[in-house]
């Protein structure tokens, strides 16, 4: 199964799977720090040389900013060995960890066969806190993409301006 684009999508599908198969489904989270190999560093450097726009200061991705920096990821995998269903989500943002563990907690309520009802007063606030950042994040990601497009297309734009002058 491919990775889901958003954590909310992963959470919804996982909770459906857990409802259907609460005994066999497991959730594995993996936090990995990978030190890049020498060839990977070379590739990253080459990539940076090709695109001067993505130099270390104005680049949102830290792995590209410093070619020898290790890449850290946090992966979530919901797997049911009986049906073979596998649902995955991957992130590299520290800001998402708290929310993802929160959703793990909610999913474990399904596992424990606890009712889904909101019995704590803290829960609704958690829910709000959990849902709003995802929207923000989605918007941010889109903004980032748009900005990148703008910056890569910026060269063309500048040329046009020069031509006008």
């Amino acid at each position: 199964m491919p990775y889901f684009a958003t954590s909310t999508e992963w959470f919804e599908q996982s909770s459906l799977l857990l409802k259907a198969r609460p005994t066999t489904t497991r959730i594995t989270s993996k936090y990995t720090v990978l030190r890049p190999s020498a060839s990977k560093i070379r590739k990253r450097k080459k990539y940076l040389e090709k695109r001067p726009n993505l130099s270390s200061t104005n680049n949102p991705s830290s792995t590209l900013a410093n070619p020898s920096e290790p890449t850290a990821t946090f992966k979530l995998k919901t797997y049911d060995p009986v049906s073979g269903t596998c649902l995955k989500y991957e992130t590299n943002k520290a800001a998402e960890v708290g929310r993802l563990i929160g959703s793990l907690g909610k999913l474990s309520r399904h596992m424990a066969a606890l009712p889904d009802v909101v019995d704590d007063f803290s829960k609704p606030t958690e829910m709000e806190g959990i849902e709003t950042p995802t929207r923000e994040k989605d918007v941010k990601v889109e903004v980032g993409v748009v900005e990148q497009k703008v910056s890569t297309g910026g060269g063309g734009g500048k040329k046009k301006k020069k031509a006008k002058k």
Binding site: T25, I27, T28, S29, K30, Y31, L34, P70
Partner: peptide, 14 residues
């Protein structure tokens, strides 16, 4: 260590 993985798993204890 500077690199490596941590695996976390949860499942129902049935």
């Amino acid at each position: 260590k500077g690199h490596g993985s941590v695996y976390l798993t949860q499942k129902r204890l049935a």
